[in-house]
Design a protein around this nucleic acid. Structure first.
Length: 287
RNA sequence: GGUCGGGUAUCUCAGUGUGGAAGAGACUACGCCUGAAAAGCGCAGGGGUCGCAAGUUCAAAUCUUGCCCCGACCA
């Protein structure tokens, strides 16, 4: 038994949106006695199902999924929240003697788990200088802190102040971790995005968003999730339905590219263009 | 036939009032990212006979005239 626990693996599956990560994860989980943790900043939100391509009830009945439906649509949800909940889930799954599969498209979240981030304490002070880059620079100098690399990004500047210049510590990956990427290629991704967006609309995406607005009111700061942000503009009468679909597709394409540029930084990721090859590789590593 | 829109990059369009170096986004290729990350920030690329012709002018996408094409409406 002790040996078994020692042999437990944590398998990371990353890749751009619509690459087929989730299906691969479910198939794999059934074969290696694993549970799935979704490292995704939007599927954590309740009631946002269709537009986030959240694993369906059927998916979830086949394999337990964690970190899905943990907050209401407009609640704050941070990297720290994700880390705390994910680490809790990982401990729980492993204590049952099962393997962990971490699947998700939010690069920051998968990095945080893969590199075992430890985040510093943070102050809650509300900053009035919010968005003005110049003022934020001045405030950072006044406190004797250093500008972050991305010095024109107001959000990052605010965070430097909140963390008082501290950064979380990234450690080396745990030995039981395996990280693979799946990317069928730009053409295929675009094809799949287009099909998926059309299906979302056919499957009641608009009604889903209207229901959220009926229940929770209009979004406080606008939705973060691509499709929701766009269909909200349609609901407000700013754009046509056709425009909304098109913009959703464009947004997803751009998102997919951005994801790839994030993953490129991690040289540990072993890439595959098909789920079958990926599965083959993982099974060889795990057993 | 008449009236009103419109014709600018591969596409969607801004610019025309008040003439003065043709422009954004989509697209393609990249970079950054440690508490919003499907967020946010940055960089580069390719592309134009500004429907056609004449006129006015030092200078026309922009003003004038004629013509062609597309759309809507009216006959």
């Amino acid at each position: 038994m002790k040996n078994e626990v020692a042999n437990l693996k944590t398998i990371f599956i990353v890749g751009p949106t619509a690459s087929g990560k989730s299906a691969l994860a479910i198939g794999l989980a059934k074969m290696i006695n694993a549970e799935i943790i979704c490292a995704d900043s939007q599927t954590v939100r309740r009631y946002m199902n269709i537009g986030t391509a959240k694993p369906t009830a059927e998916d979830q009945s086949m394999v337990p999924h964690h970190l899905i439906d943990v907050v209401d649509p407009y609640n704050d949800f941070s990297l720290a929240d994700f880390l705390r909940l994910a680490e809790e889930s990982i401990r729980h799954i492993r204590s049952n003697g099962r393997n962990v599969i971490i699947v998700g498209g939010t690069g920051l979240y998968t990095d945080a788990l893969y590199f075992n981030f430890e985040l510093p304490a943070v102050s809650n002070e509300e900053n009035s200088t919010e968005k003005n880059v110049e003022l934020l620079h001045a405030e950072i100098f006044r406190r004797g802190l250093e500008l972050p690399k991305n010095s024109q990004n107001p959000r990052h500047l605010v965070n430097v102040i909140k963390r008082n210049g501290q950064t979380g510590v990234a450690k080396s990956p745990s030995p039981e971790s395996i990280i693979i990427g799946i990317n069928p290629g730009r053409e295929k991704i675009i094809e799949r995005i287009n099909r998926r967006v059309d299906e979302m609309f056919e499957n009641g995406f608009e009604d889903e968003v209207r229901a959220i607005i009926n229940r929770f009111g209009p979004p406080k700061k606008d939705f973060d999730a691509i499709g929701y942000r766009i269909i909200y503009r349609y609901i407000m009468g700013e754009i046509s339905l056709e425009e909304a679909k098109e913009k959703f597709k464009i947004g997803d394409r751009q998102y997919a590219r951005k994801q790839m540029s994030w993953y490129r930084r991690n040289g540990d990721i072993v890439w595959f263009s098909s789920p079958e090859e990926a599965l083959h590789y993982i099974l060889k590593k795990v057993t």
